[in-house]
Design a binder for these strands. Structure first.
Lengths: 206, 206
DNA sequence: CAAAATATCCGTATTTATACGGATATTTTG
DNA sequence: CAAAATATCCGTATAAATACGGATATTTTG
């Protein structure tokens, strides 16, 4: 039997997931908790194999919980079960040492499969999540190219300020801002301002 | 006892919600179904007061289900229970005759309260949902100002095409596209292309 | 710590976007 | 169905953005 804990501040989810997992003959739900603190209290006497964690929770969030568990209970493997389908969360979860990441709209079979895989020492990230990651990595690569000053200029451009207005606001010459804009265009590999704003928005730079 | 049906193609949710509602002494879950078709089959012999409906489902979606129920079972009141926190869904739900709209991350108390309110003839939309609506109305107002042709031009502008390239692609003169762009700027009350793309993105026009 | 890379700054010339004014075609509305 | 409103189209003039070439200051890296 795989010993699982569930931590999620939504009653609905906790109950539903627990019920579904109890139906299997390989997985046992040891305890359900509404917060990370509560989980940490119960862990010492529960020999949990796998911790299912939501991300959005009241005090300590699920991503931080991964790091905490890794330090305090290194044998416990964390799987994130969340509705956040944003690449950055996935990235952070992996950095913190998560063994799996599932979206809440997955079905019961996939959840059970993920738990089994992780129990057997593998990691579990499905197609959707992998896709989110690829996007996030790409975003970060592009994002980090842009300097602080350039980001500052980009913000003002997006707000509709002209080059001259930006120059006035930043106390530099019109020509300087022109160069910044030119460099931003090159870095993001776009042809003009319209495409720039489109891409910068997609990258979350604005 | 308020007689409720639950229609949602996620086992997790259906089970969890049903369990939580069964705990109350005012609400009775008559049946759970995974599709609208299944719901319609069971309704004639079940005297349901309130139908809880998810939006994303395999064949018929929950929004269409509201209209269908209104025609075929006018005494049944629909409450949407979904993870879609987009104003347009809320708007469509209301247009189709929904009595309530709840996000899936609400708690059990709120769900029970919503069911009670709707049973008593009121409508139930919480703060989050109302906020989504206000945004949506605003978006629609702005969005509908823009003509088809202008949207077409806007798309191409966002992709980084220059006025001349757009003119070539649409087989009109450069000057025509310039006027379109000018008019789009006026309609969305922005000063230049950068601000335009920013706003159009926010409005979901791109 | 020195070399290499990057960020920040500027001038001139060219290309592109926008303002202004005006016309016909299409759609909406009373 | 006619009037009003809106969409679509175009020319000329001005303002702004971008390309190109070049310089110093700051940060990274071996």
């Amino acid at each position: 039997m795989i010993r699982v804990s569930i931590t999620d501040d939504h009653d609905l989810f906790r109950s539903g997931i627990a019920m579904l997992l109890e139906k299997t003959d390989t997985i046992e739900v040891i305890h359900q908790t509404a917060s990370v603190e509560e989980l940490l209290e119960k862990l010492p006497e529960s020999k949990v194999d796998i911790a299912l964690l939501d991300i959005s929770m009241k005090s300590t969030n699920g991503l931080d919980a991964i790091s905490i568990l890794k330090k305090m209970h290194p044998t416990i493997r964390s799987i994130v079960l969340t509705m956040h389908n944003e690449g950055q969360y996935v990235m952070q979860a992996i950095r913190n040492g998560a063994f799996g990441y599932l979206l809440k709209d997955c079905d019961a079979e996939e959840l059970a499969e993920a738990i089994l895989e992780v129990f057997n020492g593998k990691k579990y990230f499905n197609k959707d999540v992998s896709h989110l990651m690829i996007e996030a990595v790409n975003k970060e690569a592009n994002t980090q190219k842009i300097s602080k000053r350039e980001k500052e200029v980009l913000q003002l451009v997006a707000q509709g300020l002209t080059t001259i207005e930006i120059a006035a606001q930043l106390f530099v010459s019109k020509r300087t801002i022109e160069t910044h804009r030119s460099n931003i265009l090159k870095k993001l590999e776009v042809q003009n301002t319209a495409e720039l704003i489109t891409k910068a928005t997609q990258l979350g730079l604005i």
